[in-house]
Nucleic acid binder design. Structure first.
Lengths: 149, 149
DNA sequence: CTTGCACATGAGAACCTTTCTAAGTAGAAG
DNA sequence: CTTCTACTTAGAAAGGTTCTCATGTGCAAG
């Protein structure tokens, strides 16, 4: 994974969306641009709130429809990292997550080379597609806040 | 982890609940007995449905309150293994999960000895409390069904 | 140009999951 | 018996997600 100039990933996602036979409507373009370079793992509500000022008539249905279409094209992944709202991740390369118990923030964690080897005692006949790791704990900010107030 | 005679784990959980100053009401006893020896990771709804025939007046609030109390006492854990309803797990020893993409069933996976060593590139200052692993894929049943129909 | 069609959108309803509230109940303490 | 506290209940309310359906838009066919 290397650095990309801004907008590059959004353009790539839009191109792939188009190739899949989906129309590049203003709403879809706005959602893709909002999400493409965002590593904060936003919820549908958060995306909607950010887009609302620029597109006041957009509805939740469109946000969910677009996120669903992006997920089908393997351009984003929907993640259940904690109870509550689903989070959407534009990073589809294998990687893991650190989730703060207190504030709920999510950070990407690079995979370890060996973490793909599956020698765990899986159920008989279970065909593994992916291995997800979630590191639960407390982020720097929350630890600081804890000591401070 | 070793085999336990039936009811043993339920009794242990009830004893601990009592020690925590909580009353052992019929509702709580029923919920604990239903959950204690169940490794299917049921949702609140599933528990409610199973208990309803025996306790027709019980409400969801009681199910959630009890699950919350059990979680606070570290007798169960609430898990977000997929988008949708939270699942409740009576196994509080460190372990991982295999989740079927198709039917959503969940099976426990014994932890690997080395899997607790955290040499991943975590965010600066992140204090790890626990490492969760989720193996995503397809269970035997769904693979068989796929070939069969 | 007009018509028809397939696809998208928008607004709100509907649905599911979870939490909250108000009122009632049971049991222990005095 | 009275009082106090904890618990339960039913339903309302609050999030999150999906569905419905009328409307709109762009394109292809006629």
């Amino acid at each position: 994974m290397r650095m990309r100039p801004e907008g590059d990933r959004a353009d790539l996602m839009l191109a792939r969306l188009g190739e899949s036979g989906l129309k590049l409507t203003p709403q879809r373009i706005a959602i893709v641009r909002e999400l493409a370079d965002d590593s904060s793992h936003p919820t549908a509500q958060e995306l909607f709130d950010r887009l609302a000022p620029a597109m006041p008539t957009m509805s939740f249905a469109t946000v969910y429809n677009t996120l669903d279409a992006l997920a089908r094209c393997n351009l984003i992944e929907a993640r259940a990292l904690a109870p509550g709202a689903t989070r959407f991740d534009p990073n589809v390369e294998p990687h893991h997550h650190a989730v703060c118990d207190r504030c709920g923030c999510v950070a990407d964690v690079a995979p370890r080379p060996r973490s793909t080897s599956v020698d765990a005692s899986l159920p008989d006949g279970f065909a593994v597609r992916a291995v997800e790791q979630i590191f639960r704990g407390t982020c720097q900010r929350c630890r600081d806040a804890d000591g401070g107030d």
